[in-house]
């Protein structure tokens, strides 16, 4: 088994990853206990300020709530839409399923900020769609851009998140559905289950791996992003990403690092979950 000798090829990658993942983590932890101007260690002093602000500041609480509310709603909608789409494609008798999948990837070649800007245009009081449609006597006005409910829910932001991250839900679910052994479904039918029961007892449990990956791949960027809320939420909507961005831009690396660690905590939780259901990372592509 000569191929086993090739394991040493991985060493540079291990070093590269350890430096670029481990070192900044360490720096962030240290930074949260300091009061410094950016990374200037000469004037830095020991301080618990960042931790105190984290638990006392209202803005942080509002930002976390906004991120959670919009992120979770977007994830649920992506799941409700994405699962059936993946299911339809996986069970279709198209000769080239790849083409249908590419159909969901192509939008990603269009700049995502520009796409959200276009969505903002459609959802404004005066939109180019309405302008064109009005020529043929139709009207489409749905000015929900900038609408924010008390819970922090912003329909426009959720629409932007769903249209941006939906492919990340469809692809992993499709990957697992495609691999399901069709004879299992036949066996279930032969043993007297109807189609609906077969779906819930066989197909769905076998697709949990893809569903978990999909949910995480949609929730994490929705939760932590700051560009989409800025474009579609008209500036009044503060997300946790918005706060991190503004802290780092104002050279307050201490509080920015602490907020990043809060996000990291959620990410590590998700990674543990993925490692449990999908050890080889099959569903991530």
């Amino acid at each position: 088994m000569n191929i086993k000798k090739l394991g040493k090829l991985v060493l540079p990658y291990l070093v590269w990853m350890s430096v670029l993942v481990g070192l900044p983590l360490l720096m962030m932890v240290v930074l949260t206990f300091l009061k410094s101007n950016a990374l200037d260690l000469g004037t830095a002093e020991f301080s618990f300020d960042s931790w105190r602000i984290l638990f006392s500041d209202v803005t942080v609480r509002i930002a976390l709530k906004n991120s959670f509310v919009n992120g979770i709603i977007a994830t649920i909608i992506c799941f409700v839409i994405g699962y059936p789409i993946a299911y339809i494609v996986a069970n279709s008798n198209f000769s080239n399923k790849l083409i249908i999948l590419v159909l969901t990837i192509i939008p990603m070649w269009s700049n995502s900020l520009l796409r959200n800007n276009a969505i903002a245009n459609i959802l404004s009081e005066r939109s180019i769609v309405n302008d064109v449609l009005s020529n043929i006597g139709l009207n489409f006005i749905w000015p929900i851009r900038g609408v924010v409910y008390e819970s922090g829910f912003s329909p426009a932001v959720v629409i932007g998140l769903v249209l941006t991250y939906l492919p990340f839900m469809i692809l992993p679910i499709y990957t697992v559905l495609e691999k399901i052994d069709k004879s299992l479904l036949e066996a279930s039918m032969d043993l007297g289950s109807n189609k609906i029961k077969t779906f819930f007892k066989v197909t769905f449990p076998l697709s949990i791996k893809g569903v978990t990956t999909g949910i995480i791949m949609v929730f994490l960027p929705s939760f932590s992003g700051f560009a989409i809320p800025k474009i579609l939420g008209s500036g009044s909507l503060v997300f946790i990403g918005t706060l991190i961005d503004s802290r780092f831009m104002n050279r307050n690396y201490n509080f920015g690092s602490l907020l990043s660690l809060v996000i990291l905590l959620i990410i590590f939780g998700s990674m543990a979950l993925i490692f449990k259901v999908d050890k080889e990372g099959e569903t991530l592509i």
């Binding site: 430096v19 670029l20 993942v21 070192l23 900044p24 983590l25 720096m27 962030m28 990374l39 995480i216 791949m217 994490l220 960027p221 939760f223 932590s224 992003g225 700051f226 990403g241 991190i244 961005d245 780092f248 690396y253 920015g256 690092s257 990043s260 996000i263 990291l264 990410i267 998700s270 990674m271 993925i274 991530l284």
Partner: peptide, 15 residues
């Protein structure tokens, strides 16, 4: 892949 872009971006910036 799973890390939030903002955390990846800031981590690299720190290094």
């Amino acid at each position: 892949i799973l890390n939030a872009d903002i955390v990846t971006g800031i981590s690299l910036m720190l290094v």
